[in-house]
Amino acid sequence: MAAIDIKLPNEKKTSVETNKHLSVILNVLKWIVLMFFAIYAIFPILWLLISSFKTNAELMSEPFGLPAVWQFGNYLNALKASNLGILFANSVFISIAATCINIMLAGMISYCIARFTFKGKEIIFVMFSAGILVPLNALMVPYFTIVNKLGLYDKHIGLIIVYTAIGIPVSTFIVRGFMNGIPREVEEAAIIDGCGFFKRFFMIILPLSKTGLVTAATFQFLTCWNEFVYSMLLTSSTKVRTIQLGIRYFTNQFSTDFVSMYAAIIVSIIPSVICYMLFQEQIISGLTSGAVKG
């Protein structure tokens, strides 16, 4: 017994020491991992941003240096050479319109699902879940045919309708989640006061689900702004095309003027980044509200 009593403290000491070494190594590894992914995520974008202010000669000779003189003219060149202004305006118009209509429709259907029981509610739920997971890219031919038959090919309204529709399942799941959280008592009090269906929806439910609507709108806006395949498939003229499609053509238009091309890409990224900076918390809560979990 006595021998053990003497030995124990020693053993403890060495194990504490090895633990210390281990935790130092783990700590270093931890920061290496964190920094690696951070640099990977941000460095290419920063490089693009800085390069967009260089001259083409600087870009070739010193790809990692800062520009000697910041060339804001690159942005003017990009605007002049590529119809960037029109493409940008198209994207803004289409994305905002498709977001507004989508959120309105998602709010309407969410209210019905969250508050009432009716036939087919379960089916709607299952179909919308499936709708989130359907690979929309597999539906290129039917989308093309539908839009053509409706006479909406190469029209703003065509893209607006398509974007509104493809976002309905995701938006509905997000908004419904928030509406479920609104206490029923609020509405019951309104019924006693004689509020009808529409008044309750517009005056009580919509204002109370503002956070959910903003979250869904953020996702919907990003989806619309970044969409490429259907913009390519359903439009053909510069009057209608979106900026994502523009990027595809910048590569040809600026075949030797790289810095202007970079400027054009930066312009196309800015709205997404601003949207992210403003609504980061909503994006994170939306991702985790179970909405995207299918």
Partner: peptide
């Protein structure tokens, strides 16, 4: 109200999800 609220989103869903998948 429920009927009026369900029709527009469900119509769009039918046109751009159910119909295209069956069509394909």
């Amino acid at each position: 109200g429920i009927t009026l609220f369900l029709i527009p989103p469900l119509a769009l869903f039918a046109l751009f999800f159910i119909y295209p998948v069956s069509y394909v």
